[in-house]
């Protein structure tokens, strides 16, 4: 539906990738069963960064405060992108993994269910 208006209505898109530093895209990441982190995070990441760098360089700083983080066995982790199963290639870039600006990822860590199993 269009916005009801007295004349033609055009909205300025505030969050296009071009408004970020060149070559940057936003990626959202949530950790399933770990709601101690109240919401998924938003990261501005270089599109040509290898996916593996998310796990090595981005997530530890964001999620490392959780006692479960150090226990993660990354070989068993499963991912989703836009709520669909997703199998990233760690050596390829975000762009080459088919990730676009404002994609939303989650990861599940089997066997880890948060503080005292409370999904926190």
């Amino acid at each position: 539906m269009a916005v009801a208006a007295v004349k033609e209505y055009v909205g300025e898109r505030k969050d296009v990738a071009a408004n970020l530093p060149p070559g940057t895209q936003l990626t959202y990441v949530g950790w399933i069963d770990h709601l101690m982190f109240c919401a998924p995070f938003a990261f501005p990441l270089p599109s040509d960064m290898p996916f593996g760098a998310i796990v090595e360089a981005v997530l530890p700083e964001a999620f490392g405060a959780h006692p479960d983080f150090a226990k993660i066995d990354w070989s068993t982790v499963t991912w989703t992108k836009g709520r669909q199963p997703f199998t990233p290639d760690f050596s390829k870039s975000l762009a080459d993994n088919g990730m676009k600006h404002k994609d939303s990822l989650t990861f599940s860590t089997p066997g880890l269910t948060g503080i005292k199993g409370s999904h926190s």
Binding site: A2, Y9, V10, G11, R13, K14, D15, N19, L26, A42
Partner: peptide, 11 residues
């Protein structure tokens, strides 16, 4: 068309 203009603090 209205909400694409949102001034989202994080972005």
């Amino acid at each position: 068309e209205k909400y694409v203009q949102a001034w989202l603090p994080v972005h």
